[in-house]
């Protein structure tokens, strides 16, 4: 079939231009598709362009016209078929207080797995410390200031030179805080991204973090410095460690979608379904680690006699309980459907 191309273009061009203008206005946010009259008009124009593309395709007409109509239909398709999802705008407070904890609970299985892997790592780290003299050096290799001296020596040093230490800490607390945020968010992003290695990378990161954490904790406990260790780690660790576990949770969610357990959906569908959850989890992790970075630099590094250990332990425990309550309880009464971000 060869259509009368000249007459066809003359007749249809005003409708195409009208659709182009409507799409420009939608993209600029000046046309509201929730207005039924407007949405019907735009839909009518889009369907007309679809019909024109179909006719041009059958007629084997001029390729430039076909390309033009394909671009027009492509733009219209993106705007019209995505419109329903974007009725509600992103609300940061609602996202943090409702969407994030809801997502955390929806994917709780991955958090449990992430915690278990870290716990296994902690046990291995503890065993390395107890069973082998070199184990301490290997497990604490990333923390030279911890590995070079015994916990008792460090505590004695911190408490004896508290004035110098406090001055040194307060001089560089801003930089230290920024470095901690950047480093910890980077580790969490890695734990999430390496989920694409079918979870192998995520498992290794979680396990390795567990090994170090277990070795450090047991090192201080065996040396009789449990109170110092709690006062040192709890204030920032109560946010930092769960944040990294949630980063791992996001990675394991990706890994499960790749493997495809418990669903008949194709791999692309599985990934598409979990992308909003993964983005929400990693966004929440970033917020938590900003707080952890501030606490670690401005609070955790001050020890007795500047800051009594019981104050630090109570502060850290309160944070931990608040975080647990936030993740487990917030957004429970929210009946609205989750908005795909």
């Amino acid at each position: 079939m060869i259509i009368d191309l000249k007459r066809f273009v003359e007749k249809e061009r005003p409708f195409w231009q009208d659709l182009e203008r409507a799409l420009d206005r939608i993209q600029a946010g000046t046309l509201d598709l929730s207005d039924l009259k407007e949405s019907r008009r735009v839909l009518g124009l889009f369907q007309r362009a679809c019909s024109d593309l179909s006719r041009v395709g059958q007629a084997n007409a001029e390729p430039e016209l076909r390309t033009y109509l394909e671009m027009l239909v492509g733009r219209g398709y993106a705007e019209i078929h995505s419109a329903q999802t974007y009725v509600r705008r992103f609300r940061p407070v609602h996202w943090l207080l409702h969407t994030f904890p809801q997502t955390f609970r929806r994917q709780a299985w991955a958090f449990h797995l992430s915690s278990t892997l870290t716990l296994v790592g902690m046990i291995v780290g503890g065993l390395m410390l107890v069973l082998d003299v070199d184990g301490r050096r290997v497990a604490l290799a990333p923390f030279q200031h911890v590995a070079m001296q015994t916990p008792s020596e460090r505590v004695a040093n911190e408490e004896k030179n508290y004035k110098e230490n406090s001055h040194r800490v307060s001089e560089h607390s801003g930089t230290f805080s920024a470095q901690l945020m950047a480093n910890n968010i980077g580790v969490s992003i890695k734990a999430m991204a390496f989920g694409l290695t079918w979870g192998i990378g995520t498992v290794l990161i979680l396990f390795y973090n567990g090994v170090i954490l277990g070795a450090v904790c047991l090192d201080y406990m065996l040396d009789g410095q449990t109170v110092f260790m709690l006062g040192w780690l709890l204030p920032h660790g109560s946010f930092e460690i769960p944040a990294i576990l949630i980063g791992g949770q996001a990675g394991l969610v990706i890994a499960r979608a790749l493997i495809g357990w418990g669903t008949r959906d194709g791999i692309r569908t599985r990934l598409r379904l979990i992308v909003p959850d993964v983005a929400t989890l990693i966004g929440g992790v970033a917020v938590m680690l900003v707080w952890a970075g501030i606490v670690e630099a401005f609070f955790s590094q001050y020890h007795e006699p500047v800051l009594p250990y019981w104050v630090k332990i109570i502060f850290g425990t309160t944070e931990l309980i608040t975080l647990a309550a936030f993740l487990l309880l917030c957004g429970r009464n929210d009946k609205s459907q989750p908005v795909s971000a």
């Binding site: 492509g74 398709y77 993106a78 705007e79 078929h81 995505s82 999802t85 974007y86 992103f90 980077g186 992003i189 890695k190 999430m192 991204a193 390496f194 694409l196 290695t197 990378g201 992308v275 909003p276 993964v278 983005a279 929400t280 990693i282 966004g283 795909s340 971000a341």
Partner: peptide, 19 residues
Amino acid sequence: RGLRLRPSQVIVRNLVRIA
């Protein structure tokens, strides 16, 4: 799928860059 890009897609595609 030819639909509009979602913010979550932008976040994930750019963070996975690390891998």
